[in-house]
Design a protein around this nucleic acid. Sequence first.
DNA 1: ATCCTCATTGCAC
DNA 2: GTGCAATGAGGAT
Length: 160
Amino acid sequence: MMHNLEISIVKCEIGSILIYSNTSNPRVCERIEFLDDMLEETPENLFTSQIREYLESSRRVIDFPVKYKNGSKFAYILEKLRETVSYGRITTYGELARLCQTTPRVVGFAMAYNPLPLYFPCHRVVGKQSLGGFAGRANNIQKIDGLKWKKYLLDLEGSI
DNA sequence: ATCCTCATTGCAC
DNA sequence: GTGCAATGAGGAT
């Protein structure tokens, strides 16, 4: 399942961002996760520098090489999100669902399974009446305060 | 193969 | 207000 992945770590105000990349050529990012704990940072690389620039507000688009399972409805929804909702903007589950010809519920599911948050900016998808949710984990069993991260990212982008 | 889980919304009563 | 249908994919068994 998780065979040859290397973990890079960037710290921020509220915790750590974990970047899982493969070790083959070319190096691509396969997963991004959030952790409430403050971990030791790893040496700088393409992935950590982009994340750090984003956190310092000098970068608005994460565009390092990634790999994810495409061709599914979920992947389509994530791709549509990435191409239509730019930095500092937000949308709702319902709006994105209309754009993708599905239901808001399914958009929520797609966000919950997002393996590459920040690259696919799922934090910019909010509920009609509330902020909605935020899992912040693609696969691990760590429990984090997801909403705290969603608010942090939206605040960073000035969307509050 | 079956069951469960997971970040929603709008409409009917 | 409450109830419910719509409805992808992954993981466990």
